[in-house]
Write a protein that binds this DNA or RNA. Structure first.
Length: 211
DNA sequence: CTCCAGGGGGCCA
DNA sequence: TGGCCCCATGGA
């Protein structure tokens, strides 16, 4: 597990997440990001900021229909609008420091599941918790760390956390690196010949090409 | 132009 | 758990 991390870091370099500088942007970004390319998340946040929506009180006052239009570049925008509204209406959460209790609070918000909750904690609350997404599962499965690709979220999270130093920047970078690797090489039709992990991959055997 | 994948989450059986 | 729905975007 640590070897994957060091290999990815060496080949792909530091990813430097989270791209959005403000706390508002980080939180909104974490809520919009699932199943959406980051570029489209940025478009959505830009739409909001151009409309002067750059803080939670403003978001709370914003008409839902208008909010939906602003974040339309992100898929499932109606669901995500509900999540944003719910977060804006629970502004007291912003003052709480990261914890597993706060995680439960996030999970009680509409349309916020484990990945989204953990993204909020890891990137907007600086709380060291590993985010697991479809790429994470697919990559670890192909590398032989998981018995199957469809597997319980918590199990994968525990596995990773048990084998990495419990360190904020390690978790932040590792998830970002796995996403980057996934985007580049680990689609359902994989592009393994160029994958930096190719020589370690047990499922797919093609030659490693160094960039 | 059409087809379709698919970085999540909720709900229901 | 497994199936279905939500539903923009971009590449084939």
């Amino acid at each position: 597990m640590l070897k994957i991390y060091s290999t990815l870091f060496e080949v792909l370099g530091p990813q430097g997440w989270w791209p959005h500088p403000t706390r508002f942007g980080k939180i909104v970004g974490a809520l919009l990001a699932p199943a959406v390319k980051w570029g489209n998340v940025v478009r959505a946040i830009d739409n909001l900021e151009k409309a002067g929506i750059d803080n939670f009180p403003a978001l709370r006052e914003l008409d839902v229909k208008l909010l939906e239009e602003y974040i339309r570049p992100t898929i499932y925008y109606r669901k995500k609008a509900q999540a944003l509204k719910a977060m804006a209406n629970k502004e007291e959460l912003l003052e709480i420091k990261g914890s597993l209790l706060l995680r439960e609070e996030f999970l009680s918000l509409p349309n916020v599941g484990r990945e989204t909750a953990d993204s909020l904690l890891l990137y907007a609350w600086d709380y060291p918790i590993m985010v697991v997404d479809a790429y994470t599962k697919r990559i670890l499965y192909r590398l032989g760390y998981l018995p199957q690709e469809k597997i319980d979220y918590d199990l994968v999270q525990q596995l990773i956390e048990s084998k990495l130093p419990k360190d904020l920047s390690t978790y932040q970078e590792y998830h970002a690196l796995l996403v980057r690797l996934g985007e580049l090489y680990c689609k359902k039709s994989p592009l393994c010949e160029d994958c930096p992990l190719n020589k370690d991959c047990q499922k797919i055997h093609l030659k490693l090409v160094e960039g």
